[in-house]
């Protein structure tokens, strides 16, 4: 049954949207954060796979807005609003932001997961979007899938199995 469904795949540092039917998915989240915005009335959903917390450190020519939390969350929000979503109805869910490897010492790179989560939360707060589901942190990878009919976010990991948010 699930195999027949329409699935939109979102790669690392990418964003995507889906409407009325099907799933939107991103795989292998480690320190990256998968964030979804959902308008239940339109059954319109968007997902972004964020890699780094802030675009301040960007050294690339053309900025890939989907890569950085501080640019990705507003960009996804705008894309959904342009597609007709009502800002007041949007709800957010997110997963990921783990620390895959534990080092003594480590420094900032090692804390990239928690920093991605913090940055995403700050952006949501600024946009006034409630965070209704979260499965972040830990030291394991996750694959997430949002059902755009129900708004349920499925989080799959090797150790924890499937969680519904």
């Amino acid at each position: 049954m699930i195999d027949e469904q329409h699935v939109v795949k979102v790669g690392m540092a990418e964003m995507g949207t889906i409407r009325s039917q099907g799933l939107i998915r991103t795989t292998g989240l480690g320190s990256c954060v998968g964030l979804t915005l959902f308008d239940p009335k339109l059954r319109l959903a968007g997902m972004v796979h964020v890699m780094l917390p802030s675009s301040d450190i960007a050294r690339e020519g053309t900025l890939n807005v989907a890569k950085y939390a501080d640019t990705a969350v507003p960009a996804l929000y705008e894309q959904l609003v342009q597609s007709g979503a009502s800002p007041g109805r949007l709800v957010a869910k997110m997963a990921g932001g783990s620390q895959m490897f534990a080092f003594a010492g480590g420094g900032d790179t090692m804390r990239i997961g928690p920093r991605n989560v913090e940055s995403c939360k700050a952006c949501l707060e600024e946009l006034g979007i409630p965070l209704t589901g979260e499965d972040t942190g830990g030291s394991y990878g996750r694959t997430i899938e949002l059902d755009c009919e129900t708004g349920i976010l499925f989080v799959r990991s090797v150790q924890m199995g499937i969680k519904e948010l």
Binding site: M12, L29, G30, C32, M51, L52, S98, M100, R142, V158
Partner: peptide, 12 residues
């Protein structure tokens, strides 16, 4: 763990 989750660490 999942290869994607692990390797992304080397891409930061």
């Amino acid at each position: 763990d999942m290869a994607g989750a692990i390797l992304s660490y080397g891409l930061l």
